[in-house]
Each structure stands twice: as structure tokens, then as C-alpha cells.
Design a protein around this nucleic acid. Structure first.
Length: 105
DNA sequence: TTAGTGACAGGCA
DNA sequence: CTGCCTGCCACTA
């Protein structure tokens, strides 16, 4: 459990409902602008712990990109459940739902 | 140790 | 928006 990992987890848990954040954004806030992939790996590892709102993390294009088909569906449903509009393809309106960090609160 | 791979990002056509 | 390619970092065989 590195410091980077803890920060990433804290940030993700800090994302308000109805908002989403990008992998790169979380990585940057955690102190590693190039750690987007590590953020993804952390999410994949922590996904089994339902305590983390991993469904609010998407890629920089505003699209849900996930390896597991079921995971994609669960994420889409959870986002819509929080009031986030998600297209069938997994597209999210970043300019309205993007969360830029704790300072944005 | 090297090679392959991935829930990514950014630049370009 | 879509497709292709390069760069990054950590994990696995």
C-alpha cells in the first residue's frame, strides 16, 4: 500500500455523487500525472471492495472504458442512479459532470 | 532479466 | 467522434 494508492483512494472517496472524474485527473491530484494506468489498476484491485465508488472514474474522453462487460453495465447503472446521464455507448457529459478535485467543492 | 499486457493519455489524420 | 500510434508505470509469465 503506497502513499500514492492511499491518495488515489481518498480522492475517489471524495468524489461527490452525481459527479465523475478522469483517471489522469485522479493520478495528477495524487501526485503522479503519468500514473493514470496505476489508478486504473488500483480500481481494478479494489473493485471487489464495494466501499469504493470506482464507477465515478472514467477516461479523459468522457467514456466508460472497462474490460469486463458486466462491470460496464454496473457502472453505467450506478451513474444514472446518481443522476449522471450516460449514453448507451458509455459517453458522459464531462463539461457538466467532471469533478476537478477537492478545490471544486 | 526480458517481454508482454492493461478499467489510460495525448497527438495526429 | 473514430482510428492509429507512442509514452508511462506496475504486474505477471
Amino acid at each position: 500500500m503506497t502513499e500514492f494508492t492511499e491518495k488515489v483512494i481518498q480522492l475517489i472517496k471524495s468524489v461527490p455523487e452525481g459527479k465523475v472524474c478522469t483517471y489522469g485527473g485522479i493520478a495528477a491530484l495524487a501526485g503522479s500525472p503519468r500514473g493514470a494506468r496505476q489508478v486504473a489498476r488500483i480500481l481494478h484491485s479494489m473493485s471487489k471492495k464495494e466501499g469504493l465508488p470506482w464507477h465515478r472514474i472514467i477516461n479523459t474522453k468522457g467514456y466508460i472504458v472497462i474490460k469486463d462487460r458486466d462491470g460496464f453495465l454496473r457502472q453505467k447503472q450506478r451513474l444514472e442512479q446518481e443522476g449522471v446521464t450516460v449514453s448507451d455507448t458509455g459517453a458522459v457529459d464531462l463539461q457538466y459532470y467532471l469533478w476537478s478535485g477537492p478545490a471544486a467543492s
